[in-house]
Design a protein around this nucleic acid. Structure first.
Lengths: 187, 187
DNA sequence: TTTGCATATATGCATTTGCCTATATAATAT
DNA sequence: ATATTATATAGGCAAATGCATATATGCAAA
């Protein structure tokens, strides 16, 4: 999947691994992330498959960098992926929910502390997303030349992050309240 | 992480791999899932670590089965995990959002079709979760003996699934509408 | 002055994951 | 009669993932 993300960005313009990491950090971070080393590996693998071509660019003041360009094979692969519909919903893995599920045997305060911490973290994240605009994404994405529809879609993914955080906070507050009232009933 | 899920269930009572899979399907499926083969591997690994002990039970009419029991070491590991707070929020991977992000270069109908399909799938899932009660979870979880707090927490994880599906559907409908109105403006 | 940070790429390794296949038996459905 | 499903365990393998480490340079901060 990471490969398609990389092809997606390279389809706008040529980029190196380091830039790709930075762009992902500022745009797809909320729904897709990757380690730098993972990106380099994926780029190598993409080149072996003929989806991209690279050229080493010598820099006098900075380390050499390898520029990646998408090929027709790569564009075809990208389009095939984009066009093939997902026939199932994605299955998530949420460690917090797993812990909540098994926290009944512990002191309620143990899980309450953790839920409150998560609530604070998610509130920070919400504040961060809310303060971000499409222009920011665009700028951080190194001014990828994007038509009008792209901007609508980018804004939509940003909106997904906001809705997700709001929902998460709602759930955390509900859960905290229900555990607290249970504890109150016990004492 | 899967290991802790298994320990969490085994802390209620002894179970075999097949049962663990079934229980997870009916309880933690929405936020944690695992392949059967993954479960067997994890159980072996847990036994090697001394977290569980197994005993082969011969059955005349069915294949032999290996019963797993949690040890004190395992209980300690479980408690340590439950007690150690998550200091970051979980990072998700959502293929659909990735596709949406890069779908600007395609015909809008291509992504619209996919979004509508996902909306239908999520609506089905919501209907499924909504029709489920804690009693169902409990029953499917092979009547794990659970104190009052456990039930509150289980209900809370079920509620998380419902909120998530509702949010997802809201986002899908918003996104579909915004792409449609963009297309209308174009023509 | 030295520490750390930003730029830039790469390797190594252990673990996790997903998916497929094999084996065995009994009951059920077509 | 035959095929599928449910019960039950397990091995194999490729890919993805995460994390640490190595290397190299210039610049800014402490």
């Amino acid at each position: 999947m990471l490969k398609y993300a990389l092809l997606g960005f390279l389809n706008y313009r040529s980029l190196n691994g380091y830039e790709l990491k930075q762009i992902m950090e500022s745009s797809t971070k909320n729904f897709w992330h990757a380690d730098l080393s993972q990106i380099y590996k994926a780029l190598k693998s993409l080149e072996a498959e003929g989806c991209v071509v690279s050229s080493l660019e010598h820099q006098s003041e900075r380390p050499d960098r390898r520029n990646y360009e998408i090929t027709e094979v790569g564009q075809q692969a990208l389009h095939n992926w984009l066009a093939s519909p997902l026939t199932t919903t994605s299955r998530m893995k949420e460690e917090l929910l797993l812990k909540v599920f098994f926290s009944g045997q512990l002191n309620p305060e143990t899980i309450l502390t953790q839920l409150r911490l998560q609530r604070d973290l998610h509130q920070q994240q919400l504040a961060h997303y809310s303060g971000q605009t499409v222009e920011d994404v665009e700028q951080n994405a190194s001014s990828l030349e994007a038509p009008a529809l792209d901007k609508i879609l980018w804004e939509s993914t940003r909106r997904a992050g906001i809705l997700y955080e709001k929902m998460y906070i709602t759930w955390l507050e509900e859960t905290i309240a229900s555990i607290e009232s249970h504890g109150a009933g016990e004492s």
